[in-house]
Each structure stands twice: as structure tokens, then as C-alpha cells.
Design a binder for these strands. Structure first.
Length: 818
RNA sequence: GUCGGCGUGGCGGAAUGGCAGACGCGCCAGCCUUAGGAGCUGGUGCCCGAAAGGGCGUGGAGGUUCAAAUCCUCUCGCCGACACCA
């Protein structure tokens, strides 16, 4: 008997078997007409980068585990997948390898990634797969652009744009990080003036901001980031007449109209249109020189806060409308032409930037807000807080908040200004001078101007030849859809963030060739119940998607006003201290993992490794621990006698009887269900480990393998299934059960069975725990007191002690008054 | 600079304001064994102690509370986002 070989599972034998069965049975195929409640479980569709590693897998395992559980809980689960397939890496690859087309490179990568996902046992409804670079998808991306155009939300404008000299394309504001290209952190972005397409996301600024309040199941971090990005501020626009130019004035924007009396000079952005008008002959040469220098500076230099402020006087003066004072007009590049009105009143006493500027150029500083307590006699820095207004004419004496309102009222009555709300958010520049994107579907006609391509002529497909569209006359030469004149196609393509702003809607009806999505089906599945992806999309993708849904809602195409109800940002997987990636060369590939420890061990390990939102470090011994755990489950379920035998060899562990076993099973159902639902997989795994420990102790305490044991076994297998589906499915079959485990109902939680039968009474005296007493659950306060006082030890503990005599029973406090 | 988040054993980490350190890794001791990098049992926060037991303990200092890792104030450290937006 001693030579007995313990049974072990071999992942390479069971994993492919079950993957094949699930695919054949269409386990994750979502039905549009199911009577079950729907659950839309979505992971951010990725850029197809080819072979996947365990860093990618963590995200997808979470989504898969949730989908599997929700399915067992009786939901009709939509768990789709697709590819954000336009974009630069494909072009870079094509440029490196002559003759390689971005399409081929992309589709090869898709195939490779897809194979890896399947090897991990991750189930999607592949019937609904979308690929954004395919004409049947980007046809509708183009259609959505035309919808925006029709609704006045797409426009063309000449603008100083962010230009990446390496990628040779324009970037959105959101793609410029510290003045550098988001794809090339050491390449500084240049400013160029180009005619470009924009989407008017600023029209939705208020709603994008206000509706964040509805997203209470989003990480607050993301909501804060979006709030800051939209950057709404309340203030006033005020007209300052230009001295000597009757009827002309400069409009400024301020968030502190209460400091209007403290304005001692005015500053225009170098690009401000009135610069020429206000500059006197004497100052013209110097102003011109300053503007030239400012233009040549990169965004980085200009925006650096470390840099000392610079500027130049124009020689012109403006009249402060509240007191008729003449104040000099300066030009300085710390004022941005793109924000507010491109001009400010400078109040050095109450604004740090103005203060610094005034110090440098020796401009007057006048205090108009007195700090609340203890006035600062010396003005060493600007006081930006609230306080009482002083030196402010009829408004002196008011507190600054009231003064804000009174001055605004006064300005509006006098017609000299008005309340105004400004945003940091800018319109979304979507033109890209790249081949590998969806062509913007418009035609430039000499007679009719900008003409949208008629819907029945969509899609405007990309030419087969990989080369910039502007260099392909065969492609861009066309005729005007209205008059038939010779015309030219737009040669820019769209930002790929447009593709990803609506893909989740396409999943509702991915094969519809008559519309972008079927509104009825979209309304059936939307909104997304759980959205999972990286925090790097906290602003760009999520803000754009929210914008699209609001536009589509206004167009009557979807009921939802927000796309994603619950958002989760998972942490990244690191190895050797660095984020796993192909370029860092530290990835554990899915192919390698499944060939060794198996997909299930990798899945459970990645869920157990740490909190799901935290970055985690991959390490082999942790993975081995999980393999050990799974092998133990395997034996416990299929070969419990081998565990019973071990008892005699080494002595018993903890005593576990049937009552304890039952209770532990019930508790585990409750905890695991709750924690899976909240994506707290690390603790869910810990609870399952506790259950197996209890089951093992039960066997080793001589527990019978009766109905209770069988129930425990089946519960364990079901609860573990979302994380370790292959092994659980195989065990289910070997247990002689009929049907797929994937189709089994989720175990029901029995609160009564999970409750402890004893409660503890903790006797604290003067803040210290003096004694503990086991009592029955469900006793009233009086009964509990009686039990407590019946105890000799309790009486002794209380005897002669100080004032605080407190009992604690579960979550109830009982105060004992002597 | 501003705004957010986080500081718990040797390590990853648990803890609706209620026995801090679950679960796992690692380590120590033992058992078993045709010796496997296997399996099993016990131990493992720190200090004192042979033990029983006692003291200390969640970055630091205060505070609220019968009770604080958890709430409040200040402070130090780390991480992230934004960064002249008037």
C-alpha cells in the first residue's frame, strides 16, 4: 500500500479537451432573445499585438471569471471581444518590412492573440468579434462621423496643432504629455498651423462633468481625473476699453471678479488678435521680437513653471471699468490664447503668477482682499484665499464671496461684463495624416465645398497600396457627389480613439449591414454592467466613449446616457521589477505557461497574487503554491481515501465534525460569491483554500464520506470553477455528474447555516479586554447580561474597577451600570 | 506646486470601528517514503520567559471612542495624475 501513486491532474491532457467542448457547445454565446436577465461584461478591446503574455491574461481572466459566475447565476451574459486594429504599430511594422501590408500584419497578430486567449480557457462570444480595421466596421465609424457632421458636432478649422515629428501626424491634446508625444516620450511636439477636423466635445462639457455623479461605481480616482480634465471654472468676462481707441475694448476672463479693483495691469497672449491694435509705434519692434521668440519656443519651454515669467509692454493702456483707472497692457506667454479670452486682468496681490510678473517688471501691487485674521503687513506673496474686500469703492467691506456676486450683478447691469463659465477641455482634434485609419468620409468640391460622402457610398475604403493617402491620386481623385465635378477626397484618416468610442455598441448587432447598431438590441444590452481595463484610459477612451453615447442618446439611438455603469482598473503584472512586456523581454508567454503549469494554475495564481487593482510581481514559487493547492483539490475531490491514509502516517490535524464542515461550506458560498462579484479574487481564493483546509481536516478527523461530504465536494468544485474551469469541469465529469459544470446553477447561500452557533462576549474594563465568554447566538441584552453576571470570572474582573464597564456581543454593545 | 491614493511580519497580503497578521510564499522542527523540486504534522509579528504567562506592536505625534490599522488633525515617506487654465 505504501507504494500507492497519488492521483494528479495533467493540464495538457484536460485543458484542450474542455476548450474544445466549450467551443462546440457555444457556452459563451449570448442570445438576444433570452428571457434571463442580461449581464454585459466587457473588457477593453486591445490593440492586437500578437503573442500574449501573463500580463495581458490577468485582465481577461477577471472578465472571464465574472462571466462564468454570472452565467451560472442565471444571467444571459454578453462577454464579447474585438480588436482596436487601426493605429501606428502596424504602419511601423509595414515600414520596416518592405511588401508587408498593415492589414496582413494586423490580422496575423489577431490570429496569434486569439489562439492564446483560447489556450487560457477564456471564453468569449466569438460570433460577435469586431475588428476596427475591417471595412464592415469602419463603414459605421465613418457613418458616425457623418452623424456628428450633420448634428453640427464636426467642424473644420485652421488651428495651431500638436505635431509629432516622428510619427508625422497631428495629435490630440490628450495625446500630448508634458509637451511630448505620448508614443515617444523623448520627442517634443511641434506647433503647426493646419486645417483640421474637430469634434465639438466641449458642447457636452457640462453633461460630461455633471453625469460623473451617476458613476458611483467608478473608481473615484478616474472621476477626479475626468473632473480636472474638463476643468470647469466659474467667473466673469469683463470688457476693458482700450485707451485712445473709442469703442474698442479687450475682453478678459477672470474667476475672481471680486478682485477687479486690484487690477494694476493687463496681459494679452502673444497670439491675441488685438496685439497689433494696442501696440504703440515706439514699442512695436520689441513686441514683434518677443512674439517671434515665443513662437519659436517649444511647448515644453513655454509651459514650464520653473521658468521665470517674461513679457513685454505694448505701450497701450486699458481702462478698468470699475474705477476708470488707466492700466498698462502687456504681452506675456504665460497667458494662453487657447483658454478663456486669451487675455487677463492682472491682480498681483491675489494671484501668484501675476505677483511674480509684477515683481519682475516692477509693476504696482494693490491689496484688495484682506486676509481674515492678522493682516500680513509685508506683501511677500500673493494672498489667494477669501477675505474682506478693501480699496474696492462701493464694494469695500463685503466678504469676497458676496463681492463676487455683487460685482457680477453690477457688471451685467452696466453692460460691462457678464458671468461666464469656462472649461479646460478643448475640442477633439481627430484628423490624422496616416494611412492606417478610417478615412474621413468627405469630398472637397470646387463648387460645393466640403461635401459629405453619401451614406450609400460608404465605406470609403482604403486603397490597397500602403502609402500616404495624400500621395495616391488614383485614390483621392473623385467626383463631387452633388454636381459630379472633379473633386478630391479628404486624405486624412480618423484618430483611432473614434473607433474605440463606439465598439461596445457594435457588439449588440455585429453583423448588421444596414446600420451601425440595432437600437433595439443596443438598448437590450446597454449599458455595460462591468467594464474592465487599464487606468491608462482614465481620460481619453472613457471620456470619448461617454461623449459618443450622449450624442447617440440625443440622436435617439440609445436610451443610455452613460456607457459603463461599473468600471474597474486592474493592476499590471510585473516581473523582475518591470511591467511585463514584449519589449522588456520579461514576459511569461501563455504558450509557455500552458505547456508547463497549465492555464488553470496561471489563472488562479494571477487572481491570488494580490489585490486586483494593484500592480503585482510574478514569482515562480507563488505559482508552485497554487499548483499544489489545485492538486490538493483534485485529490480531495477524486481520491479522498489517499488523504485519509495520510492521517495515520502523520497524526491528526484540527478536529472538524459534520457541523463545522457544513458551516464552513455555507460561509464559503457567501464570501466567495460576494468577493467574485466585487472582483476581489485574491480573497475569494483564500476562502476556497480555507474550505479545502477544513475539508482535509474533516477527513483526517475521521469524518464520514456521506451526503454532507458530497455536498461539500460539489460546492467546492462549483465555486472554484470560474477561476479554474478546466480542472473543475474534468472533476465534475469524473464525479459522474451529468451535463457541463458550466451549465450548473451557482450554489445558494444559506445565511442560517453560515452563522456561527456561538457568539462571544468580550468583557472590557477600562478599555482593556479582561475576559471572554462563549454565549448563545441571538440572546437579548438582558439575557446576555444575566449570563455574564453569572460568571465568577466576570464578577472578579469588574470588582473594584473604574468607570468603564462594557460588554460586547457581536455587533451590539451592552453597557453595564453598577 | 495642486489634487488623489497608499504606508500592516522575512515576502505577497487579510481584517462591516470589535481577538491585528486570514490565505499563501519562505523558513524551522518532525513524520513518511523504491529519494520526487513529492506528501503529511506542528511551529513561525517583536521582546522577556524553560513553560504558564506577561509586555510591546499596523510610518511618526496628538485626538475622538468602552473599543482605532480603520474616523479626525498635524507630520514624515512612497506612488500616481495634472501642471502658468487666470
Amino acid at each position: 500500500m505504501a507504494t500507492r501513486r497519488r492521483s494528479v491532474y495533467v493540464p495538457q491532457e484536460i485543458e484542450p479537451k474542455w476548450q474544445k467542448i466549450w467551443a462546440e457547445r457555444g457556452v459563451m454565446t449570448a442570445s438576444d432573445s433570452s428571457p434571463k436577465p442580461k449581464y454585459y461584461d466587457l473588457v477593453m478591446y486591445p490593440y492586437p499585438s500578437g503573442e500574449l503574455h501573463m500580463g495581458h491574461a490577468r485582465n481577461y481572466v477577471m472578465g472571464d471569471a465574472l462571466a462564468r459566475m454570472k452565467r451560472m447565476q442565471g444571467y444571459e451574459v454578453l462577454h464579447p471581444f474585438g480588436w482596436d486594429a487601426f493605429g501606428l504599430p502596424a504602419e511601423n511594422a509595414a515600414m520596416k518590412v518592405p511588401g508587408l501590408h498593415p492589414m496582413k500584419w494586423t490580422l496575423d497578430n489577431v490570429a496569434e492573440s486569439k489562439r492564446d486567449l483560447k489556450m487560457m480557457g477564456i471564453l468569449y462570444d466569438w460570433d460577435r468579434e469586431v475588428t476596427s480595421c475591417m471595412p464592415d466596421y469602419y463603414k459605421w465609424t465613418q457613418w458616425l462621423f457623418l452623424l456628428m457632421l450633420e448634428r453640427g458636432l464636426a467642424y473644420r478649422a485652421m488651428a495651431p496643432v500638436n505635431w509629432c515629428p516622428v510619427d508625422k501626424t497631428v495629435l490630440a491634446n490628450e495625446q500630448v504629455i508634458n509637451g511630448r508625444c505620448w508614443r515617444h516620450p523623448d520627442v517634443e511636439v511641434e506647433k503647426r498651423d493646419l486645417e483640421q477636423w474637430f469634434l465639438k466635445i466641449t458642447d457636452y462639457a457640462d453633461r460630461l462633468l455633471d453625469d460623473l455623479a451617476l458613476l458611483d461605481k467608478w473608481p473615484q480616482k478616474v472621476r477626479v481625473m475626468q473632473t480636472n480634465w474638463i476643468g470647469r471654472s466659474q467667473g466673469a468676462e469683463v470688457d476693458f476699453p482700450i485707451d485712445g481707441l473709442s469703442g474698442e475694448s479687450v475682453r478678459i476672463y477672470t474667476t475672481r471678479p471680486d478682485t477687479l479693483f486690484g487690477a494694476t495691469f493687463m496681459v494679452l497672449a502673444p497670439e491675441h488678435p488685438l496685439v497689433d491694435r494696442v501696440t504703440t509705434e515706439k514699442h512695436r519692434a520689441r513686441v514683434h521680437e518677443y512674439i517671434e521668440t515665443a513662437r519659436k519656443e517649444t511647448e515644453i519651454e513655454r509651459l514650464s513653471t520653473e521658468r521665470e515669467k517674461s513679457g513685454v509692454a505694448t505701450g497701450g493702456f486699458a481702462i478698468n471699468p470699475v474705477n476708470g483707472e488707466k492700466i498698462p497692457i502687456w504681452i506675456a506667454d504665460y497667458v494662453l490664447v487657447t483658454y478663456g479670452t486669451g487675455a487677463i486682468m492682472a491682480v498681483p496681490a491675489h494671484d501668484e503668477r501675476d505677483f511674480e510678473f509684477a515683481k519682475r517688471y516692477d509693476l504696482p501691487i494693490r491689496e484688495v482682499i484682506a486676509p481674515p485674521a492678522g493682516s500680513q503687513t509685508e506683501l511677500r506673496e500673493a494672498y489667494v484665499g477669501p477675505g474682506a474686500m478693501v480699496n474696492s469703492g462701493q464694494f469695500s467691506g463685503l466678504d469676497s464671496a458676496t463681492g463676487f456676486e455683487r460685482i457680477c450683478d453690477w457688471l451685467e447691469q452696466q453692460g460691462k461684463g457678464k458671468r461666464s463659465v469656462k472649461y479646460r477641455l478643448r475640442d477633439w482634434l481627430i484628423s490624422r495624416q496616416r494611412y492606417w485609419g478610417a478615412p474621413i468620409p468627405v469630398v472637397y468640391c470646387p463648387t460645393h465645398g466640403v461635401v459629405p460622402v453619401p451614406v450609400d457610398q460608404l465605406p470609403v475604403t482604403l486603397p490597397d497600396t500602403y502609402a500616404p493617402l495624400a500621395e495616391q491620386p488614383d485614390w483621392y481623385r473623385t467626383t463631387c457627389p452633388i454636381g459630379g465635378e472633379e473633386a478630391k477626397r479628404e486624405t486624412d484618416t480618423m484618430d483611432t480613439f473614434i473607433d474605440s468610442s463606439w465598439y461596445y455598441l457594435r457588439y449588440a448587432s455585429p453583423h448588421d449591414d444596414a446600420q451601425a447598431f440595432d437600437p433595439e438590441l443596443a438598448n437590450h444590452w446597454m449599458p455595460v454592467d462591468q467594464y474592465t481595463g487599464g487606468v491608462e484610459h482614465a481620460i481619453l477612451h472613457l471620456l470619448y466613449s461617454r461623449f459618443f453615447v450622449k450624442v447617440l442618446h440625443d440622436a435617439g439611438m440609445v436610451d443610455a446616457i452613460e456607457p459603463f455603469m461599473r468600471l474597474f482598473n486592474q493592476g499590471m503584472v510585473k516581473r523582475f521589477g518591470q511591467v511585463m512586456s514584449k519589449s522588456a523581454g520579461n514576459g511569461v508567454s501563455i504558450a509557455q505557461l500552458t505547456g508547463e503549469q497549465g492555464a488553470d494554475a496561471g489563472r488562479v495564481y494571477e487572481m491570488f497574487i494580490g489585490p486586483p487593482e494593484e500592480d503585482v510581481e510574478w514569482n515562480e514559487s507563488g505559482l508552485n503554491g497554487v499548483v499544489k493547492f489545485l492538486q490538493r483539490v483534485w485529490r480531495l475531490v477524486l481520491e479522498p481515501e489517499s488523504i485519509v491514509e495520510e492521517r495515520s502516517a502523520a497524526g491528526a490535524g484540527a478536529r472538524v465534525d459534520t457541523v463545522l464542515l457544513k458551516r464552513r461550506v455555507a460561509q464559503t458560498i457567501g464570501r466567495v460569491t460576494e468577493h467574485y462579484d466585487e472582483l476581489r479574487f485574491n480573497t475569494a481564493v483564500a476562502f476556497l483554500m480555507e474550505l479545502t483546509n477544513t475539508m482535509q481536516d474533516y477527513l483526517q478527523s475521521g469524518g464520514a464520506r456521506d451526503a454532507e461530504w458530497d455536498a461539500a465536494v460539489r460546492t467546492l468544485v462549483k465555486l472554484l470553477n470560474p477561476l479554474s474551469p478546466h480542472i473543475c469541469e474534468e472533476m465534475w465529469e469524473r464525479l459522474g455528474e451529468k451535463g457541463l459544470l458550466a451549465d450548473q446553477p451557482w450554489p445558494e447561500f444559506d445565511a442560517a447555516a453560515a452563522a456561527e452557533e456561538k457568539a462571544e462576549l468580550v468583557i472590557q474594563v477600562e478599555g482593556k479586554v479582561r475576559d471572554r465568554l462563549e454565549i448563545q447566538v441571538g440572546l437579548s441584552e438582558d439575557e446576555a447580561l444575566k449570563v455574564a453576571l453569572a460568571s465568577e470570572r466576570v464578577r472578579a474582573a469588574l470588582n473594584g474597577r473604574g468607570p468603564s464597564r462594557v460588554f460586547y456581543v457581536k455587533d451590539r454593545l451592552i453597557n453595564l451600570v453598577p
